[in-house]
Amino acid sequence: MLIRQKPDIPSYEITSESHYLNRRSFVAGAAAGVALLGAGQALGSIGYAGVELGGEVTPESIVTSHNNFYEFGTGKSDPSEHAHQLTTSPWKVKVSGAAAKTGDFDYEDIIKGFTPEERIYRFRCVEAWSMVVPWLGIPLKDILAWFEPTSKAKYVEFTTLYRPREMPGQRSYFSSIDWPYVEGLRLDEAYHPLSIMAVGVYGKALPNQNGAPWRLIVPWKYGFKSIKSIVKIRFTEREPKNSWQVIAPREYGFFANVNPAVSHPRWSQASERRLPSTLFNENRMPTLPFNGYAEQVASLYSGMDLSRHF
């Protein structure tokens, strides 16, 4: 897979190369046992639109070992321990619904015409932890437009692979999730320039535990919207039912925009722990509306009561 960087990415989406290289030495330093946070802070800040954050990019070792991917278990290290069982080649993608090009596609055939670009995004989990992750991704709009959705397509629904043989979490008798995992976006959200289909992270192909071979990244929404290991894309007229909304409609909505003002029965959303967090420096910081991307995306929701459409 050819991974090149497009020159015309706005500065808020990308880190300068010197920072990126610095980050490499930071990871090496961390691996060598240097105090994590101290080294991270030395990195300086990354320019994000309108907001100045602590700036450190989460080390690769953490991005690839602290995951929520319930298909492999509910523990944070379960995905990195079990996801090696997953075969991602060949990878078929079924496209259906309101589009001109539907049917079964080979993943490779879909992405071969696109060039992944690096996007450094904040990633905010609904469980009140967050990371900063250098994804390699393709603008979601480019991919979806390739299937030529019709005027009836108002929403797009994504489905994760269902393969209990390789996904121990799907074999469990004690799961409340009606597999496969489903997520969805309004088409204008999906077409927003910040939405990407990630095919890599840290300059490499996506590890299985991060949702290989491709996954959604919608940085202004809670992490569970960014569905992994996608095998189905469906264009619909009606709002899809996403898995967590089905399980607990009081807790999870369709939009799931990061919103410190809307409290959750399990976690305060007013602040977050930016990982890596240590026992004596939790690295807690205030959570920003739309995860800090309000300037770019707030207009998508003008006129909506976000405390109701959470």
Binding site: G33, L279, F280
Partner: peptide
């Protein structure tokens, strides 16, 4: 594990040690 955490953060309790403890 907590002592280990003092010397090398992330070594035994993961990236989010407070939750783990």
């Amino acid at each position: 594990a907590i002592l280990g955490e003092l010397n090398a953060p992330g070594s035994r309790l993961g990236a989010d040690p407070a939750v783990e403890v």
